[in-house]
């Protein structure tokens, strides 16, 4: 242990917001704008960042990440655009059907897993459908910095091209829109070949499109580090599970939105910890017995330790199954 370990909750800090506007963009996409109830400015963010929106939907909590599309220079609001996914797990349906202006919601501080490489001499954005959202923030940011960029935006048809009209009107020379229904496609090979040295490419869209861009860029001799794609690590609330703690002689339930460590602390067990982020090793705990599978999310255990089923790091890792007995 070191100085004064803090029992602060792991993960990103939360922000309470009020839904200030719900704006239909087209048949499938709706924009949600948030303000802070006390009118305070939002934390600044970097283009490419997402926020995780907490939704209380019939007794369970959904946590869905959405790219922040508003101008990073405007701290008065955050905005996201959400495509209705009729087949999906329900987060987008909840937002489309239940959320109204004036509602209070909780979102996380921005997290950026898709940052702009500011060393880039030029930035080429490749968007597919709703994948346009992070680029709206990037464009706003790069315009302020006076950096070179261009956008190639592939949409199903003109009616579903969210923000396509706005973008072409505002940046005529820099935006090209391609319509699937008119058999238009991004001329990727030529595009990649024609770029000056030091260009960075960013892709956000369906998985097939992302793979296509990475593959083609490699074939055309692009350095791996100059091609960026959004990797959404969907946040992991996880199913509740029961744990037997031998030494403390109690059985506790780990809720869907708390970590195993937090559940132990809630029940008065004095469990060791330091980083609360899976790196320091302090919380390492012996598994006495288990029936089920571990979801290891730490950076601490070695592969063979994980395979042995004898160790778990309660600050970040979870378990699925009927029986877990810990030496704690």
């Amino acid at each position: 242990m070191s100085a004064a370990p803090q029992k602060a909750k792991a993960g990103a800090e939360k922000i309470e917001v009020i839904v200030s506007a719900v704006v239909p963009v087209n048949d499938l996409v709706t924009r949600f704008e948030f303000r802070r109830p006390d009118g305070a400015p939002f934390p600044p963010f970097s283009a490419g960042a997402h926020t995780v929106v907490e939704m209380k939907d019939q007794g369970r909590t959904r946590l869905n990440p959405y790219s922040l599309m508003s101008d990073p220079a405007d701290p008065s609001l955050y905005a996201i655009s959400v495509r209705r996914d009729d087949q999906g797990r329900g987060g987008s349906l909840f937002l489309h059907r239940q959320v109204k202006p004036g509602d209070r919601m909780t979102i996380t501080y921005p997290v950026n897993l898709f940052p702009v490489d500011l060393r880039g001499r030029k930035h080429v954005f490749l968007a597919g459908g709703i994948g346009i959202t992070p680029f709206l923030a990037m464009i706003a940011q790069l315009e302020k910095l006076g950096a070179r960029w261009e956008l190639h935006y592939s949409v199903r048809n003109a009616a579903l091209g969210s923000y396509a009209g706005d973008l072409t009107a505002r940046h005529p020379g820099k935006v090209r829109v391609y319509h699937d229904d008119q058999q238009q496609a991004i001329p990727l090979g030529d595009l990649l070949d024609g770029q000056p040295l030091g260009t960075h490419v960013y892709v956000c869209g369906p998985k097939g499109m992302i793979d296509w861009v990475h593959r083609t860029a490699t074939e055309h001799g692009w350095p791996k580090d100059n091609v960026h794609s959004e990797e959404f690590l969907a946040p992991q609330p996880g199913t509740p599970f029961e744990v037997r703690l031998c030494k403390s002689d109690m059985t506790i339930l780990v809720g869907e939105n708390e970590s195993l460590l937090e559940a132990m602390e809630r029940c008065g067990v004095d469990a060791p910890f330091l980083c609360r982020g899976g790196a320091c090793g302090q919380c390492e705990t012996d598994v006495v017995d288990h029936d089920g599978s571990f979801i290891h999310r730490d950076h601490w255990l070695e592969d063979d330790q994980r395979a042995s089923g004898k160790k778990i790091m309660p600050c970040v890792s979870r378990f699925v199954g009927p029986t877990l007995v810990l030496d704690r």
């Binding site: 100085a3 004064a4 370990p5």
Partner: peptide, 25 residues
């Protein structure tokens, strides 16, 4: 900096969200 009577390098990181009043943390 020493929480015990010996010292070795470790991943000694913790959250930085305040600390006891008057302390440097």
């Amino acid at each position: 900096p020493f929480h015990e009577d010996s010292y070795m390098y470790s991943v000694n990181m913790e959250q930085h969200r305040g600390g006891p009043a008057g302390s440097v943390f």
